[in-house]
Design a protein around this nucleic acid. Structure first.
Lengths: 125, 125
DNA sequence: ACTTGAGTTCACCTATAGGCGAACTTCTAG
DNA sequence: CTAGAAGTTCGCCTATAGGTGAACTCAAGT
């Protein structure tokens, strides 16, 4: 049973069949159809979904995940491709952290309250 | 001119009049109406919007910003109220950073690729 | 009086990530 | 052969943060 149905893939990846179809529409996974128009997926679709889910956790959209995954050939047993895609995720994630960190530190100056002091007595000089 | 129209407030806060109405619907700001049904805002609305915008940058929704702002009395010249609200933002922001950091570090193990190795050489038995 | 500008409400559009149900087809087992 | 499980498409619903246009009112200036 090298091919997976929607439900099987959904179970394996820990998502709903609904989500699987959604991922297909977004190009995260690619399937072909069997007679009767049912989706069939290669097992590597599981990894693709896992990667996309991991990506979501660092704020990467499905669309961007699809772009990353597009570089990995179908049914690739090439583990390097996967690990480097994973590494890219980590790289992006670290960048997100730095960005957020900088934003928070900048916020901590409370400068965002700006000059328009509400009805405050003395404008900050 | 102690009261502000939508347009004036929008300009002062650096958003569109559209956004101002949106913020009012979400309770970020509160206005009253003048004859002719036009919105009128107290100047502290500028600070409320600024705070909400700052909050957005650390992933806080308008709804949550509204909750934070609800603790500040209208037209408050009480600077402490504002700085402590700002401090809360920073606190939440720092928490977000730690969370994201942890997520990324966990991701860096690449464990998310799971067992279901694509079509790797060794058939899973 | 008329125009213009700024205000109003209402409702639909975007992107993101799906959930849910209707209605229909196909596959599989007894 | 027929019932049920699982598949299909389609379209509407959610939340978030607004943008955009239609149609309309209101107050002011010339």
């Amino acid at each position: 049973m090298t091919k997976l149905t929607v439900g099987q893939l959904a179970d394996a990846a820990g998502v709903t069949p609904n989500a699987v179809r959604f991922y297909e529409r977004y190009g995260v996974i690619t399937g072909h159809r069997s007679s009767g128009n049912a989706r069939r997926f290669d097992p590597d679709a599981i990894c693709r979904i896992r990667l996309a889910l991991a990506a979501q956790r660092v704020g990467i959209t499905l669309k961007d995940s699809a772009a990353i995954l597009a570089d990995i050939p179908p049914m690739s047993p090439d583990l390097d491709r996967w690990t480097s895609a994973g590494a890219e995720l980590v790289r992006i994630g670290r960048a997100r952290v730095s960005q957020l960190q900088a934003t928070v530190e900048q916020l901590s100056t409370l400068d965002f309250l700006g000059q328009p002091q509400p009805a405050a007595g003395r404008p900050r000089s």
